[in-house]
Amino acid sequence: MVRRQDLATIAALVNRAKNELLRVPGAAVPGVLAPTIFFLGLNGVFGSLTQLSGFTTDSYPSFLVPVSLLQGAGFTGAATGVNLARDIEQGWLDRLLASPAPRWVLLTGLVLAASLRAFIPATAVLLVAFGVGAHWPGVDGLLIVYAVVAVTAAVAACYASSLALHYKSQSAAPLMQAGMLALILATTAYAPLELMQGWLQDVARVNPMTLVVDAVRQGFVGGVSWEETWPGILALAGMLAIVGALSLRGMRRTAL
């Protein structure tokens, strides 16, 4: 059962994470810049892929924008893991662990902060995408965008946190970032499944993130339908359950 004081603790931890953003000048910039640059860059480079027969849309920005949105969310979640590793190195986590607050509450505070923070790069990428001609996804499509961004950031934050709790060092940062990047890009990121090649096609076929990319993409390249939405929700829920359990286990095993 969730108690009032648990909610207060979660809110307090989210509040603390907010400082990181508001009190460090330029802290939000890298998180916004990376997916935006990749979006514009890949658009300029691979834009003519839409001329291939079998490509599902003639607007490459519309096709690409889901990937950059997810990349922004993954990047933000990974940053949460890096910050946690720093907190472990500096002893801050001990303050939280020595308190009677339940471990899942501590983890939720951390992860929720990542989810909320991920709205910043997502909004920036969306605005830039519309600027270079991405289609309007509809209100339902937009809702899906923000919901998926929040949960993807949570998945990334849990994944990165479990690494942080295991390695207890910021030097695990590349593993956090590369892991999320691989998960998000080994999908139908750049082209539809039929046009992909070799082993990556096989990986994308079984990668649950492909379902998530497709769910976000539908609004931009066509219309939103429940059939295209629920597999993405299911995939995200499954991933969150797994990495959530992993990171909670990591939180409980810090005393080992």
Partner: peptide, 20 residues
């Protein structure tokens, strides 16, 4: 273990919250 970005007051309030 202190967070350099927080104020002293914020830190003690956070600790109070953590203690329920």
């Amino acid at each position: 273990a202190l967070d350099p970005l927080m104020t002293g007051r914020e830190l003690i309030r956070l600790q109070a919250t953590l203690q329920g």
